[in-house]
Design a protein around this nucleic acid. Structure first.
Lengths: 341, 341
DNA sequence: GAATCAACCCAAACCGCTTTGGATACGGCA
DNA sequence: TGCCGTATCCAAAGCGGTTTGGGTTGATTC
């Protein structure tokens, strides 16, 4: 059943039917009601392909997921972010287009999305320092929102980020207040912007107390269980080991915990651990009582909000770049305690 | 730059230019070369919206991700499956459309995808027993491939699955051969088809040795770290505890390991654990030497293959349902050993 | 030399919707 | 009574491709 058929069946022109369905004022309310009724009765739904061509809008948003050719990792937080964004799109009648491409093809993919008109905008994931995508997207004129920020980028752009610096600053202060002086940082890959900011927060807190950071206590790698385990194990075995760990993710946190327990120590008593908790739905930090003390910020909520921001930008072009900084909560769990004497 | 402009610039008709670019035989090779060159020079790429309308094909595949309204979980293996499928789509010029919907809306979503012509086919995720989606999709005539199977479904349908029954049967046999007699099953939610099959494999292996299953050793829940921990902890504390665990996922496996170590026991010596390893890219089972003994099957590869199967079905309608059963490998790691005396 | 055929190219219809630019009818106003 | 504004509705022209159904040309066949 298409528009024309529905129109003939109603004895109306396609124009009128289209207007009736789309809420235009120049159609009699009685007629509109008749059209609406007929539409639902005949189970009519407009062909999106035709709408897209006629309106010139894609009614879709793109997410380009780069598959790093080097370490083949699918970022586990994507799943929740995407789920959040997807909720927003469903609510607004937008489609979500996922492009999984090797990171060499990322640039080409954005250009194709633009030139073939597949999407009205994109969300940029996992920004790095001086991320070249920002200038490129501005240049080709494809609306976008960055999840995170790109330190060093000069151009203005829209972004939504968690205050990673502040979160790690507060977490470090919290550990310092508990008397810890040897605090280790188990960070993500430090070409990622969020990881840089977290390290900065950590360093700032130390500096504020006049403490010199120890590079032996600073680790940076993929945020996996194995990496977290390896890092913590090595640090605990080294001379003058840390009494506290600041960990970039729930998953690495599990590895750190294993190393701690494997060394015969108890979490929250011998060793304190604070993780960053993205509230991944399949990796909850305990049910009601949090297991780990954590800086908490829902990545799923971030997905929802970033998508809303993008839809807003698409609906109101030329409204200038938008920015939004979310604060992480500091949640006290069972993994922290006063530094052992 | 669109087709018509390119045609005028070349002094040709849109017809000829279209045919030249799409490889039709009725165009002079010299002309074709000229067209191709001009196309790349002027950076022409066809408007997909127009192509879709003209051809009546969506050039897109849908993945409907249900967000369970009850436990709000985003299945962690989606990420890797989607990544695999996405690779196939990119290679074939198809788009991947993700719909994140509450599971009450799932039915409606499939119907909309069909009636609005947004996709040429869909992948059905997480089939349950007697899954109603299969009959529904057959009825509305939307091509699909099920990732997994739906026990009890009478209609024929295309699917790609891992031999879950056989994997867990072999794993159980392996533990039995090591002398274990108290083998616990830490399963996923048993309304999911894969979980049912795994349990069946487990039960079959026990039955083959004339052993009666103990319901106290059979656990079923969400596959999270916390759930795995809780289950294992409870079983280990109960009278007549198991000496081995068969665990449905890497993530629950981490929880089981924590419970084992928390009880002061050593993995592979006091307690044996076999997990199912989907080879999630962010949750590797060790680097070269596997940590856990595991039934291994890459869900990402499954994504690739399922997508290929679907594209094949779309390209050759009426070719009848396709089926593909992947075997899991049994990988020996460090988490299993002979039953303690 | 006329008929035939292959090779090559084009005009125009079409996909299903939106949107522009009227047309028609009716009531109110001067 | 005649003009005008308002309320309704419609015909037709896009949107940017693909595809159908010819044309034209030059070589081949008889």
């Amino acid at each position: 059943m298409n528009l024309k058929e529905l129109a003939t069946k109603l004895g109306l022109s396609p124009t009128t039917v289209s207007r009736a369905l789309n809420g235009y004022p120049e159609v009699n309310e009685a007629t509109r009601a008749r059209v609406m009724a007929a539409a639902t009765r005949h189970n009519y739904s407009p062909n999106t392909r035709a709408i897209r061509l006629a309106t010139g809008r894609a009614l879709a948003v793109g997410h380009v997921i780069p598959i790093a050719t080097r370490h083949e990792i699918v970022n586990p937080i994507f799943a929740d972010f995407i789920a959040g964004a997807g909720e927003t799109y469903s609510r607004s009648g937008y489609d979500m287009l996922l492009s999984v491409v090797s990171d060499d093809d990322e640039d080409r993919t954005y250009r194709l999305l633009k030139s073939r008109g597949s999407v009205d905008g994109v969300i940029v994931h996992a920004p790095r320092m001086n991320d070249p995508r920002i200038a490129m997207l501005n240049e080709i004129g494809l609306p976008f929102v960055v999840h995170g920020r790109a330190t060093g980028s000069t151009a203005a752009y829209s972004w939504l980020d968690v205050n990673n610096r502040r979160a790690f600053l507060r977490a470090t202060e919290f550990l310092l207040d508990l008397g810890h002086t040897r605090i280790a940082l188990v960070n993500g890959l430090e070409f990622m912007d969020f990881a840089i900011r977290r390290r900065n927060g950590y360093l700032e807190a130390l500096a504020a107390r006049g403490m010199t950071p120890d590079s032996k206590l600073m680790f940076s790698d993929e945020m996996t269980e194995v990496a977290g385990y390896g890092a913590a194990r090595a640090m605990l075995a080294a001379p003058n080991p840390p009494t506290a760990f600041l960990v970039a993710s729930m998953i690495s946190g599990l590895g750190v915990r294993r190393a701690v327990e494997g060394a015969g120590m108890t979490l929250g008593r011998d060793i304190s651990v604070i993780i960053h908790d993205d509230e991944l739905s399949y990796m909850r930090n305990g049910d009601d009582v949090p297991i780990f003390t954590a800086t908490r910020s829902s990545v799923r909520e971030a997905g929802r909000l970033a998508a809303e921001m993008l839809l807003d930008i698409i609906a109101n072009p030329g409204s200038g770049p938008k920015e939004r900084l979310l604060e992480a909560e500091l949640i006290i769990g069972q993994s922290t305690g006063p530094a052992p004497k």
